[in-house]
């Protein structure tokens, strides 16, 4: 736990409103999920008001301000789709903050766009996957969805559904121990 000079804290608090979420967490825009989490932990260790109980009121107010931005940055960036929406917002203009409700709405919109596929082949294999699901053939559904993903490698919805399906396949597979013969 690094004790930071109160002057530095106050200075950071005055400019933190102008920093984008990557800057708030001191990470590269290419950071992966783990790096985001670690940066959040690191920033929390550094700026939590509990580390500065003896500090004056102004410093604690500044810490609270920093902590709120840190949480906000983490809450947007930790979710893949919210992060995508935020990246678009960053590119499009001069805004560096995104309200969570808006981030969530944008993420939801993206999700519904992606859900059924964006390319003809992606759509085709997704339809096959859906048909498999109706027959409750999860393994076939998983295969088709994986194929769909090869046409749209960045489709987060496909990735998510694949994870779900994997869990389903694992859950429905009868547990057979190596030494057991059924």
């Amino acid at each position: 736990m690094a004790a930071i000079a109160t002057g530095e804290i106050k200075a950071l608090a005055t400019i933190i409103g102008d920093l984008n979420y990557y800057e708030v967490l001191s990470i590269a825009p290419s950071a992966d999920a783990n790096q985001i989490k670690n940066a959040y932990y690191e920033a929390s260790r550094k700026y939590r008001p509990i580390s500065y109980l003896a500090a004056d009121a102004a410093t604690r107010l500044a810490l609270e301000e920093i902590s709120k931005r840190v949480t906000e940055a983490y809450t947007v960036l930790r979710n893949g789709r919210r992060r995508e929406a935020y990246d678009e917002l960053l590119k499009s203009g001069d805004q560096v903050r995104m309200q969570l409700v808006d981030a969530q709405a944008a993420a939801g919109k993206k999700a519904s766009e992606e859900r059924e596929g964006k390319t003809p082949n992606g759509k085709r294999y997704y339809a096959l996957c859906k048909a498999d699901l109706q027959r409750q053939d999860y393994e076939a559904a998983l295969r088709n969805l994986k194929t769909a993903l090869t046409f749209e490698p960045t489709n987060a919805s496909f990735k998510e559904q694949i994870e779900e399906l994997k869990k389903k396949v694992a859950a429905t597979k009868p547990k057979v121990h190596g030494y057991e013969i059924r």
Binding site: A85, L89, G93, M98, D102, A105, K109
Partner: peptide
């Protein structure tokens, strides 16, 4: 609140669906 995002549906409706 965020017209820049050009949401078709209102943000509150979108939230319902997502959640």
């Amino acid at each position: 609140s965020e017209p820049t995002l050009d949401l078709e549906s209102s943000s509150s409706d979108g939230l319902d669906i997502v959640d």
